[in-house]
């Protein structure tokens, strides 16, 4: 049995919280640059240039690219042959506490949905764990902004609605969101499973690189079709009109009940943040 100390997990989570907020992924910056070539709106191009400049400043000065440093969502892939010395979840919460303090990140979590008193340290993080074979621990930290999260939706379609029903719903969600989720956005779509599984898949889809494609050809084609049609909606950078509404559409699927076709659409702003480590 391999063992790992909880303190190491805390340190790594603290580092990832900060790096995710300071350093925008290369895949996103590459998409900004590609969009700059294609964007038809002059205002849209100006905004894309500002976003590139903003990412540069954030990286160079190590300051958050966005003031909304997010709800800290942590994805774990825990090897079943690994033993953690100490409490794994406590170690992660401590890492968030430390990272948000050290990095001068905003504390955006309130402890009760109605009483709404700030917890003061951005905890609790939301932790999703998958147990896998092996003796490693993969940690992905994905701070999620509230503006785009608020524009996300889920719908339980009928099986008869099929592929077209899914497309219509995704387009409707993006269109209704308009300028609110800080376009150009990344669209995570979860299709299948149960109510909560679809939502989880949609969130997980946001972790995939923007230049990646789903391994199943039909789904990869659906990703491309949706991206094309979303960019025809006219919303554009900052929602001021233009041809770059989304930078990417990532879909994850799962088997369904004979009665169901759940679809979840999780929108992410252009600050599509996630950093990972394998311990």
């Amino acid at each position: 049995m391999r063992t790992i100390k909880a303190e190491i997990i805390t340190q790594e989570v603290a580092r990832l919280c900060q790096e995710a907020n300071f350093f925008l992924g290369k895949d996103v910056i590459d998409e900004f640059k590609a969009a700059l070539e294609r964007e038809e709106s002059e205002t849209g191009r100006e905004i894309l240039e500002q976003l590139i400049q903003n990412a540069n400043i954030a990286g160079e000065e190590q300051v958050p690219m966005c003031q909304d440093t997010g709800f800290t969502v942590v994805f774990l892939e825990l090897g079943q042959d690994l033993t953690v010395q100490g409490n794994l979840y406590s170690a992660i919460q401590e890492g968030v506490r430390l990272g948000y303090a050290e990095g001068y990140l905003r504390k955006s979590i309130v402890e009760h949905p109605f009483k709404r008193k700030n917890t003061g340290d951005n905890t609790p993080a939301i932790i999703h764990t998958e147990v896998v074979s092996g003796d490693r621990l993969k940690i992905i930290v994905a701070p999620k902004g509230g503006g785009s999260e608020n524009m996300s939706q889920i719908k339980m379609l009928k099986p008869a609605d099929g592929r077209q029903g899914v497309k219509d719903f995704v387009l409707q969600v993006v269109d209704e969101a308009g300028p609110n989720p800080c376009p150009p956005i990344v669209v995570g779509v979860g299709i299948g499973g149960t109510f909560e599984k679809a939502a989880y898949l949609a969130k997980k889809a946001l972790l995939r690189d923007l230049n990646s494609a789903h391994h199943e050809r039909e789904i990869a084609e659906l990703e491309q079709e949706l991206l094309f049609e979303i960019n025809q909606l006219g919303i554009g950078p900052a929602g001021l009109g233009g041809t770059t509404t989304a930078l990417g559409v990532n879909i994850e699927i799962f088997p369904c009940h004979i009665a169901s076709l759940p679809v979840a659409v999780n929108l992410n702003c252009h600050a599509a943040r996630h950093k990972e480590v394998i311990l």
Partner: peptide
Amino acid sequence: DLYEEGVRQYRKKAKSGR
């Protein structure tokens, strides 16, 4: 309203909740 005017200008698809 700039959001309405801007989007109208670049919209190539007649499909929307809005």
